[in-house]
Nucleic acid binder design. Structure first.
Lengths: 343, 343
DNA sequence: CATGCTTCTGTGAGCGTTCACAGTAGAGAA
DNA sequence: TTCTCTACTGTGAACGCTCACAGAAGCATG
């Protein structure tokens, strides 16, 4: 990347130009820019007018050089990228975080670290201080990138409960266990008793908690827990399809199915359809997430809504707080049962 | 955002530290960093060793301050965000651009400009020089943001052919017309003659070109063009469903259907299924894009693949060239017919 | 009148780079 | 020898901002 571009942008006004225009000093303009304390109303007014007139916008590089912060944050995905492509939730999360940050005038840098090399490069980039903090999406058990960043003292907020239960980890998650409980109670209320489950990966807290909620409600209701009704997948559509086939083979009398993600539920629907089971007449199906996959499925999926808009907002709030010096914190948000055609 | 964070990152080494370590001057280190011309092999070696030893990473803010460029680029989406959520192609494009830029060590800033306010804020941000260039995704007819940026002399590359055919516009697009031709020829080769089409929006070049390809092939083949077999949608799933219903009402003898996007084709499948038409036995269905929607559909969609990986790579190449002072250019990439179960 | 306090303002220094320039050393040509 | 040319290296200035500090002005208190 060499300089010069055909369009010929002319150089923008500096804080000096604004100061001259307003008849004050650089320092005063800077104070107005950063909160405006200890500035007389007169000066305040003059500076604002000058800013409008000159079209001044602060040079963030110059600011960052002296403050030592970049006023930008990274959105880091350490999953293999296929998941990113497939799962509609990422979009919602990503866009939610982008907008929440935009409200603070903080740009979001997208960082995809699927391969080993990319991970190294990005870790280096982050620890070099090129971003002030990181929003991390990773359902991995023990994510080495996360550990490395934490060790380097980089403010970090994770989406979803992380595995290693270190208390110094900030994260935001939906109440997986409670959501699962709601869903299974709902299935029970429909008179179903042979309820199968395709859980998430059991090396992630999310996967574990949803399965725990399932077992808990069945036990409470006095329904026997049958291991033949339990399989686990990896949240992908394909694994939902395969898992459901296994369940149908192991427990042909299954009359309901709780699938731990909408994407897997889509796969489940395909498998049930192929096996000639009608949904919801023969088998009631419940998903998890309330992603766009839920409404696109036929029949539309009853599911557990994760409040992604609130999750992204909380992630940003927590991260900014942490950058501001506060201690890491965890936030668990309530889920909501959304009833549609599949139950 | 105030300073200080609990973790306490210690301040990173500067170019000065490296220079001292290597026993050379700042200037020499800088030269090594930027290409290494006019540096003796001895010094080169010493500097590289010092960089490794100190773990030095260049401070991009200081560099940007003096060079005037930010070494970062913006990925701008001016569509309403629902499209972003729904369309799997965006993910592929976004991730492709991110990786192509990563190869040049250039971070990507995600910018979502759905609302009027966001558009203003982002335009301001960009024209202030906080990014060196913009990758724009917008199928809008005449995008006001694009015009404004171009006027301000901001290097810009658009995805998809823009409407106003100004020659100073850089863009990368798939060969829509040719892709459509391939698909319709394929349908004809199956013996189908009553071929319906759900086109894209006709105020976009992409929509127009795909329809043109359709008409062209039919005319060549001596098949009469029946206006009752032509409707248009907006690339959304819902519009595909509605359009297909209209076609079925207007032309019940339709035996094939060319849908201008996979997402709309999913909707078409739903409508056909509801009408009791079997796919592909009664009606052959062809889509466009080869997005993940194509393989997820049942039956899997025959479609026209847009080479999204190459598109994103070309967009980045063109943008960097433009930043380097070259003139805007257009690139049209070939499509490929992918045959699956729906035809 | 001096003193202190509060509110406000201007000034110089410096953040970590790159860039232009000056300068050195060595090789080859006149 | 002396000059020129090439290959390389060091140095000061500047980029645009924030921060610490010094100082001014106004007002109350001793």
């Amino acid at each position: 990347m060499t300089m010069s571009n055909t369009g010929g942008r002319r150089k923008p006004p500096t804080i000096h130009d604004v100061a001259r225009e307003a008849g004050v000093s650089r320092g005063t303009v800077s104070r107005v820019l950063n909160g405006g304390h200890y500035v007389s109303p007169t000066a305040q007014e003059a500076v604002n007018a000058a800013i409008r007139k000159t079209g001044y916008v602060v040079n963030r590089h110059a600011r960052s050089l002296i403050t030592g912060r970049s006023d930008s944050i990274g959105f880091l995905l350490t999953e293999p990228q296929e998941r990113f492509f497939e799962d509609p939730n990422f979009n919602v999360l990503l866009s939610g975080c982008t907008k929440a940050l935009a409200a603070h005038d903080i740009p979001l840098l997208l960082m995809l670290a699927g391969t080993r090399d990319e991970r190294r490069r990005i870790t280096r980039y982050i620890t070099a201080g090129h971003v002030d903090g990181v929003l991390l999406v990773s359902s991995h058990s023990g994510d080495p990138v996360a550990d490395e960043l934490r060790e380097a003292g980089v403010p970090l907020v994770q989406c979803g409960k992380p595995m290693g239960l270190g208390s110094k980890v900030s994260y935001v998650a939906a109440d997986d266990r409670d959501g699962a409980r709601d869903m299974v109670r709902h299935l029970l209320s429909l008179g179903r008793r042979r309820i199968g489950v395709v859980s998430g990966p059991l090396d992630t807290p999310g996967g574990v908690d949803r399965l725990a909620g399932y077992k808990e409600v069945l036990t409470e209701a006095g329904v026997e827990i049958d291991e033949r009704l339990i399989v686990s997948g990896d949240y992908s559509r394909a694994s939902g399809e395969a898992g459901t086939e296994r369940l149908l083979a192991q427990a042909p009398d299954m009359d309901a199915l709780f699938v731990a993600s909408d994407l897997m539920a889509q796969g489940a629907l395909t498998a049930l359809h192929r096996a000639g089971r009608r949904v919801p007449e023969d088998v009631s199906v419940g998903g998890f997430d309330d992603s766009s996959a839920a409404t696109e499925a036929t029949p539309a999926l009853t599911t557990v809504r994760q409040p992604y808009d609130r999750i992204s907002a909380e992630m940003v709030r927590l991260l900014l707080a942490q950058i501001g010096g506060e201690d890491p914190a965890a936030v668990i948000l309530p889920t909501e049962l959304v009833k549609r055609e599949s139950t």
